[in-house]
Amino acid sequence: PDLGLTQLFADPNLIENLKKNPKTSEMMKDPQLVAKLIGYKQNPQAIGQDLFTDPRLMTIMATLMGVDL
């Protein structure tokens, strides 16, 4: 199971919303991170391994779920 990750990354406004959010806007200036996020739309399971190697993803996930870290 993808634990709902498919829906989190399926939002067509995902990148724009993250660019507008004060907690994630600075991160979204990294083209490699943006490319990763776009890739998760097609393969949400890929985030599982990346969560352990890129701490920014935890902040992004929390933001998408509405959790304040």
Score class of each variant (00 low, 15 high):
residue 57 L to D: 00
residue 67 V to T: 11
residue 36 K to F: 07
residue 40 Y to A: 04
residue 34 V to H: 03
residue 48 G to W: 15
residue 27 M to N: 01
residue 36 K to W: 04
residue 54 D to G: 01
residue 67 V to Y: 09
residue 23 K to N: 12
residue 51 L to A: 10
residue 26 E to V: 07
residue 5 L to Q: 07
residue 22 P to M: 05
residue 10 A to S: 13
residue 11 D to N: 08
residue 47 I to H: 09
residue 69 L to H: 15
residue 10 A to F: 08
residue 61 M to Q: 02
residue 67 V to H: 11
residue 3 L to I: 14
residue 62 A to F: 11
residue 69 L to C: 08
residue 14 L to F: 10
residue 14 L to A: 06
residue 12 P to M: 05
residue 11 D to Y: 03
residue 46 A to T: 15
residue 36 K to E: 04
residue 3 L to E: 08
residue 3 L to Y: 13
residue 45 Q to T: 09
residue 34 V to A: 04
residue 16 E to Q: 10
residue 55 P to I: 13
residue 18 L to M: 03
residue 23 K to C: 05
residue 48 G to Q: 15
residue 13 N to E: 11
residue 51 L to T: 06
residue 47 I to E: 04
residue 8 L to T: 05
residue 31 P to N: 09
residue 26 E to C: 05
residue 50 D to T: 05
residue 10 A to L: 14
residue 17 N to W: 15
residue 17 N to M: 05
residue 11 D to H: 07
residue 4 G to E: 13
residue 13 N to V: 04
residue 45 Q to W: 12
residue 15 I to L: 10
residue 34 V to L: 09
residue 60 I to F: 04
residue 2 D to C: 08
residue 41 K to I: 11
residue 36 K to H: 05
residue 13 N to F: 11
residue 47 I to G: 07
residue 46 A to Q: 12
residue 62 A to Y: 07
residue 14 L to Y: 11
residue 69 L to V: 11
residue 18 L to Q: 00
residue 19 K to E: 14
residue 39 G to S: 15
residue 12 P to H: 07
residue 8 L to A: 11
residue 8 L to V: 12
residue 30 D to M: 01
residue 37 L to D: 00
residue 28 M to D: 00
residue 30 D to V: 02
residue 28 M to I: 05
residue 26 E to H: 07
residue 60 I to V: 08
residue 13 N to C: 07
residue 1 P to G: 14
residue 47 I to P: 05
residue 5 L to P: 09
residue 3 L to V: 12
residue 53 T to D: 14
residue 39 G to L: 06
residue 46 A to L: 13
residue 65 M to Q: 07
residue 55 P to H: 10
residue 69 L to F: 06
residue 69 L to I: 14
residue 26 E to L: 06
residue 40 Y to N: 02
residue 1 P to Q: 14
residue 43 N to R: 06
residue 39 G to A: 13
residue 51 L to V: 13
residue 69 L to T: 15
residue 66 G to W: 08
residue 66 G to N: 12
residue 54 D to N: 02
residue 46 A to H: 10
residue 52 F to C: 09
residue 7 Q to Y: 06
residue 50 D to Q: 05
residue 27 M to C: 03
residue 43 N to L: 03
residue 30 D to W: 02
residue 32 Q to L: 14
residue 66 G to Q: 10
residue 48 G to K: 12
residue 29 K to S: 10
residue 58 M to A: 12
residue 45 Q to V: 09
residue 49 Q to H: 10
residue 9 F to E: 01
residue 31 P to D: 10
residue 42 Q to N: 15
residue 10 A to E: 12
residue 45 Q to D: 14
residue 36 K to C: 05
residue 8 L to F: 12
residue 10 A to C: 06
residue 19 K to N: 10
residue 37 L to E: 00
residue 47 I to S: 06
residue 32 Q to D: 12
residue 67 V to A: 11
residue 32 Q to W: 11
residue 38 I to K: 13
residue 13 N to D: 12
residue 11 D to C: 05
residue 54 D to I: 01
residue 48 G to V: 12
residue 15 I to C: 05
residue 3 L to G: 13
residue 57 L to G: 01
residue 60 I to C: 02
residue 34 V to K: 02
residue 42 Q to S: 14
residue 66 G to R: 03
residue 47 I to Q: 06
residue 50 D to E: 11
residue 56 R to Y: 05
residue 62 A to P: 01
